[in-house]
Design a protein around this nucleic acid. Sequence first.
DNA 1: TGTCGTACTACGACTGTCATAGTAAATATA
DNA 2: TATATTTACTATGACAGTCGTAGTACGACA
Lengths: 110, 110
Amino acid sequence: MSVISSDVIRGYNDTMILYILLKEPSYGYEISKLIKSMSQEKYIIKETTLYSAFTRMEKNGYIESFPDEDKGNGKKRTYYKITEAGRKYYFDKCEEWKLTQEVVEKFIQK
Amino acid sequence: MSVISSDVIRGYNDTMILYILLKEPSYGYEISKLIKSMSQEKYIIKETTLYSAFTRMEKNGYIESFPDEDKGNGKKRTYYKITEAGRKYYFDKCEEWKLTQEVVEKFIQK
DNA sequence: TGTCGTACTACGACTGTCATAGTAAATATA
DNA sequence: TATATTTACTATGACAGTCGTAGTACGACA
């Protein structure tokens, strides 16, 4: 049986980002807007948190960056797409979340 | 409307500990056993995490320590009891947890 | 006598998050 | 046309909860 680590509960920003990338590649600003709207304004990811998540996840092989192609006008976005490893990581995190939630629930009063 | 911080999601060890202290005062070893059994062995708090939580929470005024009285045999336990501020903190954390859960859920696939 | 369980303390590393600050092009507003 | 705002990032370093490692010491049990 799997056991939870406490630090496990950290790093769910990665999960949110990956969820968005599951559908299609995207870039920083768009992702931050999506997280905001999807959470009904209840969660606004910090820019530094977001961009450092990109760096970390690319290093870990969960995402891959590529430049914005269609325009040569100078406005440069960096797009990210999820990798196979990233997909696996995401689904593992989903499982972990369910377990975590189950446990924490037992210590929460309604 | 309240907004979640990411780091918010950390520190639920404190919540678990306080939940136990809500009922009656207790001490490190007992609390760790309780967390283990209450979570059906799914979560085992690390000793260092537990004791540093005590230090931190006492400093913050959420708990108060007192020595084990009833025995003069040398086996010394440090008991902790929750304070009024700790009780408030606990219930605030419960609210925060519900909000957090709600948000993260939207990014989790079943 | 030695091992196991109980009940801690000390110390420092790790790492995701965050605050602060700055750059620069694109778009909207006056 | 001038200015403000939005878009789209990068850099740097601090913060703090968690964790790994190690050590102390008493009691019970075999």
